[in-house]
Design a protein around this nucleic acid. Structure first.
Lengths: 150, 150
DNA sequence: CATGAAAACGGTTAGGG
DNA sequence: CCCTAACCGTTTTCATG
């Protein structure tokens, strides 16, 4: 992962459909050299996937919620992580410092769905305490990659 | 945005390089019909961009921090939003409910950089109070799209 | 709005340094 | 590890239903 690799990754992040020849011109390499590097970056895991950034609202997911979670005493943490990974609404889940155990980021079709998700977590026996924060607007929204499609 | 559009978007999210004919076979359309729909989705803004999901650690950004921010009394909110949008470390910035004004997600090369960013926010005269939470690990990391490259 | 065939483009591979 | 050049699969366009 040298400087050119970083530049290529940055260019792909901005537009993954740019022609290899174009990218090559931008970094001073031929199209095939760029192709080789992209392959290597994928093999190394530096580039995880080619995806699309979609508008969550257009996809029917206008609600963004952050949920702080403390697991119940004796809860199976690895089961919780699997649950989070498999849940279609869970965009991110981080083990964090501070008074809470996890920070979970949810994308949902409606406010009512927050309650449903909390109920699901509770039903699995994970939930100790939680606190939900809603995003009112997002000056910097970050990329949204729809989850769950094969 | 019908059901087929959603399916196409999902398939692209999983692998944006799949051939249009392939996607067509999966949704029951011809390659050119799929192409038309993708164009339309982009024009509508439902698909914002074709990108790559990269490994932040491989790119030298192993530190993930969430910062709660309350702006200083009389701070220029729109200037803060511009600042956040332009800052390379700010992956997300949300206006939120609850005791804090904003939740900011940062990707950084080292722990020390957290202090630097906070100092920058302070230097701009935005910062009232803040609280920083670090992610120790991420059971569900979410896509990382490198920022800042043209 | 979808189709199918033809045309143009770009990713891929081969051969060589 | 990179280059050029030829190859061939894919995207894209277009006429049509």
């Amino acid at each position: 992962m040298d400087d050119i690799d970083r530049k290529i990754t940055g260019l792909l992040a901005a537009d993954a459909r740019r022609a290899l020849a174009d990218i090559g011109a931008a970094v001073g390499l031929s199209a095939s050299a760029v192709n080789d590097r992209i392959r290597r970056l994928q093999a190394q895991g530096a580039i995880r996937a080619f995806t699309v950034d979609a508008d969550p609202a257009a996809l029917g997911l206008p609600v963004l919620a952050f949920v702080w979670v403390s697991l119940r005493d004796g809860a199976d943490e690895s089961a919780f992580r699997s649950f989070a990974a498999a849940h279609p609404a869970v965009m991110e889940c981080h083990h964090v410092t501070g008074p809470w155990s996890y920070l979970v980021k949810l994308r949902l079709p409606a406010l009512a769905a927050v309650e449903t998700v909390l109920a699901e977590i509770k039903a699995q026996g994970f939930l100790g305490r939680s606190e939900t924060i809603l995003a009112l607007s997002s000056p910097v929204e970050g990329a949204h990659v729809p989850k769950g499609a094969a």
